[in-house]
Write a protein that binds this DNA or RNA. Structure first.
Lengths: 217, 217
DNA sequence: TGCGGGGTCAACCGATCGGATGACCCCGGT
DNA sequence: ACCGGGGTCATCCGATCGGTTGACCCCGCA
């Protein structure tokens, strides 16, 4: 656009990825009729999206984050946007505006993050923005990103997430220790730090917060 | 159909309800082109759906369960299907196949329960089924309903849910007792029963199961 | 009238937790 | 070479939890 203001830009080549066939069909019906958008393919799983992105060389991949079993939207985004020639831009289109989701998607290389609640016109605009590598965020998402900057969220280490996972199964310290091949003392040390980071002081509270923030699978 | 096999049936009058504008637009594009379906309106909230259902007298309401703030899909379904003349059938179209969601939707009067992961053809078929009051369930949903029949789900009493709610805040027995104006002994009694019903034996496990089954708001 | 379910309370005991402190190791970055 | 963060382990103690048993009350239902 900035390079050729006179020539009518070619339609944006779009790849749709969503595990819900109905939603996929709906998006296809909605976007397929737009003159400046060409839907070159659709994927129902992360693996399929990665494969098609390589084969169809789309300009933009419209990516849902919730993709059922197999690799998820974040991982698919990471692979699709892996540095190489002509890597497509990924525009995340999802339901949730959870902090963790947004962070992970952006870290994985997403160019934009749109909510399905957005107006269709915003979607059209975002697709064209993404095609040029410009970031497009839904207002609620943008708000959360700002908030995040102001007060960073607790970041648990991988090991702490291990402990938390066992904790959510209702295991006692001894069993957690056995499950992770460490001593009970170590478990207690980790738990203490987890309590600190999550701002709680009981195991039940930790599990509640963890589930709330979707820290666990 | 069974009454007039020769006359081409009139198109099914359909009302779409989904809080996600993009999804709504997609469904409209998808279903609006079907010759035997007439989309007579769309709603972005439960309240709007109830109002439009009364005004537009559709044959079928396509209802998402997750509707953001305000009355949810279940409550909207309940009101729309309230016994009266010409009450439309409600076909639930949602993402989740949680036991609790299914149960609540059916109890509220839903005629069918379809997952968005279903193939679009199934959606068309389900809409026509619903128009005649015939039940249509996605296979995973049907499976869960069957499973439910075989092993009924733990049903916590209101009081037990109170205790569980406080538990999820990470409170100790003493604080739970104070919060609910009962003795610590009573709290322990309730907790014991909750453990039994949820099949766990620790507070952390109880919270995990509760969050998993969406037993708490 | 009796029965059962739900809610409340008590007392007891062993097991576990929460918190604090100090220590060691390994690794990556300055 | 030094330092800091992450992971590991140990020990101590008071507080809390989990499990059990038994009891009382109220209410709806047979």
């Amino acid at each position: 656009m900035s390079t050729s203001p006179t020539a009518p830009s070619a339609p944006v080549r779009l790849l749709i990825c969503d595990d819900h066939a109905v939603v996929r069909a709906g998006l296809l019906a909605l976007l397929g009729s737009a003159p400046d958008i060409e839907v070159v393919g659709e994927a129902g799983s992360g693996a399929e999206a990665v494969a098609l992105a390589g084969r169809l060389v789309p300009d933009v991949v419209l990516m849902d984050l919730q993709l059922g079993p197999g690799i998820d939207g974040v991982e698919a985004t990471r692979r699709i946007t892996a540095p190489r020639d002509g890597a497509p831009y990924v525009l995340v289109l999802t339901t949730y505006d959870t902090d963790a989701d947004i962070t992970r998607a952006i870290e994985a290389g997403a160019t934009g993050y749109l909510l399905k609640a957005e107006r269709p016109e915003e979607l059209f605009a975002a697709i064209h923005s993404a095609a040029q590598g410009r970031t497009a965020l839904s207002p609620p998402v943008a708000g959360r990103v700002m908030a995040r900057m102001r007060s960073p969220r607790p970041v648990l280490t991988a090991r702490e997430l291990d402990i938390l996972g066992q904790l959510a199964r209702g295991l006692g310290n001894r069993d957690i220790a056995r499950a992770l091949f460490i001593s009970e003392a170590t478990v207690k040390t980790h738990l203490g730090r987890i309590y600190d980071k999550l701002g709680v002081d009981t195991r039940a509270g930790a599990v509640a917060v963890a589930k709330e923030q979707r820290l666990l699978p």
